[in-house]
Every structure is written in C-alpha cells, then in structure tokens.
Nucleic acid binder design. Structure first.
Lengths: 123, 123
DNA sequence: CGGGATCCGTTGGGATACTG
DNA sequence: CAGTATCCCAACGGATCCCG
C-alpha cells in the first residue's frame, strides 16, 4: 500500500472490520493482560478490572474464534481454564503497540480539542 | 505489574478509548477518504458509499470535536461545506496505516481461524 | 446542499441467579 | 472455578421527513 496508491475499498473495509473487532470495550484490555503470560479466568477478570463475567466470557470466545487466544481446560475439580495468546495474538500486539504509543502521546491534544469544541458550541 | 513492562492501567484504558473512538463503523473510512484531500459533504458521502446522511453527520461531528477534522462553511447559496483532515488527523494515519497493513496481511488467517472454530463448535 | 428531528430495530453490555 | 441463562437498559445506526 504505497502512498498515493488508490487504496481499494475492500481493503479499507477489512481494516475497519478488524478495528471494530478489537475496538470494542474489552478486547484490547484482555489481550494486553494476556501479553504478560497465560492467565486463568478469574485471574484475568481481576487483572482487567471492572469487566463483568459475561463480557469476559464473550470477549474471550470471540478472541478465541478469531485465533488470537487459546483456551485450555484442565479437567480437574474445581475446573481450571487457562487463556493464552496465540502467535497471531502476539503479532497483533506489534501494530497495536504503535497505535497505543500514538494514543498515549496524543491524548492530551484530543482532550484539548474536545474541550475547545465543547466550550465553543456551548455558546 | 511487572517491572520493565511499565504499561499503566490508565494508559491501557486510554488506548482502548481511542481505539473505540476510531473503531466505530465509519470513522476510519471517512478519515481514509479525507486523506486524499478535502471533500464536500455529499462528495464524501458518495466516496465512502453506503453511509447514511445521519451517520456521516454524527461521524464528522465527532471527528471534528476530537480535532481530527475541520469543518469549513461557505455562506453561499446553495451552501457549501468542506471537510479536511487536521494535522492531528494526518498524524493519526501513520499508526493506523500500520494496523491497516497488518489487518490486510492477516485477515486470511483470521478468517481461517474463524472457519475452523465454527466448524468445530458446530458438532 | 447540508443538514436537524424523529422513529425504530439491532446490538452492546451490566446485574443477577443458577449450575457442573 | 468457570461458566450459562435471563432480564433489562442504553447506545448505535438506518430510514424518513423536513428545513434554511
């Protein structure tokens, strides 16, 4: 995708879809936590913080479906389930980290723009 | 929290928020189109394709609020409104392009993982 | 031409209760 | 412990009508 190249519409859609997938409320937080190593369900729940059990389940299922995370069940009592990033999941962290750094570096500018917009439209 | 891997929780949240902002259904598509230069409302509507007038309006308003886009009104009859990327908007394209290239390069792997997951759970 | 206002179906996501 | 099932609300997003 060179600069000046007429980027195909389907590619833009594809990017947008991926972005929507990992751009939901919890996926990125979960992936980030698993980036430090495998975790059990409730460990992950505590590590992420503020996520409901329902959303953690659905988030993990979707991440598993898309091949970012593996789910390993140990048939013990009580049961134990480990979640771990796949190779694809770890590779995803690279471009995401790029966006992360940009976001951290620029969130002040965004907040500032937002504040300016809000005060100007309040008139 | 591991030493040597100092991503604070607030930073993760911040990234997640930015990702959700541009990870909605249309923002990225709009930004991509404006990346080729300023466009009028209906030009943009046609260029993006499939977006409703309401969503284009709200998407542009939010992008404007966050400082990614400028809105210029020409007080003519009929009215003319130009939308253009700001410097911040153009800078955003850099990390997004990184993610874009990753998405395009790996969407086959995602589709494959998804297909495998779906057929295995169908049983 | 570039919206604003409204209605409405769909989806996201939290709270709670129950289960193997 | 690691879920599933259910209810419920709020936000997203499309369709339509109207207006300066």
């Amino acid at each position: 995708m060179k600069p000046g190249h007429p980027h195909a519409t389907e590619d833009c859609r594809a990017v947008s879809e991926v972005l929507q997938r990992i751009g939901d409320k919890w996926s990125l937080l979960v992936v980030r936590r698993l980036g430090d190593g495998p975790l059990r369900f409730n460990e992950l729940r505590a590590a992420v913080g503020g996520i409901s059990q329902k959303m953690l389940t659905t988030t993990l299922r979707t991440l598993e479906r898309d091949g970012f995370v593996t789910r390993t069940v140990f048939p013990t009592i009580p049961p134990r389930v480990d979640y771990e990033l796949t190779e694809l999941g770890r590779e995803l962290e690279v471009p995401v980290k790029g966006l992360a750094e940009w976001a951290i570096a620029n969130m002040a500018r965004i907040s500032e723009a937002r504040r300016r917009f809000d005060t100007s439209t309040a008139a």
